[in-house]
């Protein structure tokens, strides 16, 4: 049974997909004997429409602003991606109903590889796609975050040496070629003219982190040094003082001034939930 059922399901899915995403109506002569005369082509189209609508809804849910930016070109872009999806997901993270975001996981790579004309027309679209999938993934992440408030506003050097910042595990650093938060403001402005936004290239580094208290994903722009410190704190078990040392290699400030600057920065990172607490280093 499984072979016959598999053949039938495969045939129907191919017919539905071709019709839904490539606009290719099935030819009755191409059908295998067992299916010929048994498939109502009009009703087959109902499923093609349903599959198309459902896939597009999922993508629209993950990429609402990309859809807004693409305007009338959204549907053909999304359809082309859906058509390519079976190939993209083969032996890979498969999208399913409990990992719905996986449906959009390949969109960025697909866009870069296959949508040159659209990428030229909207050079910031690629960054926006990446931004939106990261936001969606962070919002749903099942990573546990234990959060504690930092009380020590003026720690001693000794305290800085023995304590390690805990980086929010629900966090991503994004390096963009365009100011994506500014682009989002433009796209969210309902009164803006329906033309492509004019945006000059500007390298920005963004930290997107989920607030462990209200679960909202907040995005802040950071400079290169801050990004480096966050990355270092995340990738190694270093103390606050180690981070100050890293900063000193990239900053010309005098020692005292640099420490003061770093303390302010650490407080900001706690406030923005980039750091979600501290812990005593073992052996300190």
């Amino acid at each position: 049974m499984s072979d016959r059922l598999h053949d039938l399901e495969k045939l129907l899915v191919e017919l539905w997909f071709d019709q839904a995403f490539a606009g290719k109506a099935p030819d009755i002569d191409d059908l295998p004997d067992y299916a010929r005369g048994q498939i109502d082509l009009r009703r087959l189209a109902v499923y093609s429409n349903v599959l198309r609508e459902n896939h597009l809804q999922v993508l629209q849910g993950i990429f609402p602003r990309t859809r807004k930016l693409a305007g009338q070109e959204w549907e053909s872009l999304a359809r082309a991606y859906c058509l390519a999806l079976p190939q993209l997901t083969r032996n890979n993270r498969r999208p399913d109903h409990f990992r719905m975001n996986n449906t959009g996981a390949y969109f960025h790579a697909y866009f870069l590889a296959n949508q040159k004309a659209l990428a030229e027309k909207y050079p910031f679209m690629s960054d926006l796609i990446q931004f939106e999938i990261v936001q969606a993934e962070l919002a749903e992440s099942d990573q546990e975050v234990s959060y504690s408030i930092e009380n020590d506003s003026a720690p001693t050097v000794r305290a800085l040496a023995r304590r390690q910042p805990l980086v929010n595990p629900v966090l991503r650093l994004l390096h963009c070629r365009y100011d994506i938060p500014a682009l989002i403001d433009i796209l969210d402005d309902e009164s803006r003219p329906q033309t492509a936004p004019a945006l000059e290239p500007r390298q920005v580094v963004l930290v997107a982190a989920r607030n462990p208290l209200n679960y909202r994903v907040r995005v802040v722009e950071v400079n290169d040094l801050t990004a480096l410190l966050v990355q270092t704190a995340r990738d190694s078990n270093c103390s606050y003082l180690d981070l100050v040392a890293v900063a000193s290699e990239h900053c010309a400030l005098a020692k005292d001034e640099l420490t003061k600057h770093c303390l302010t920065l650490f407080a900001d990172l706690h406030e923005h939930h980039v750091f979600v607490g501290s812990k005593e280093l073992i052996g300190s």
Partner: peptide
């Protein structure tokens, strides 16, 4: 179908073989 998730509940043939499966 395999690795392809379809975002829809799709019908099955009403027959003995489907019942067994």
């Amino acid at each position: 179908l395999g690795d392809l998730y379809l975002h829809e509940l799709l019908p099955v043939p009403f027959c003995k073989e489907t019942i067994e499966h």
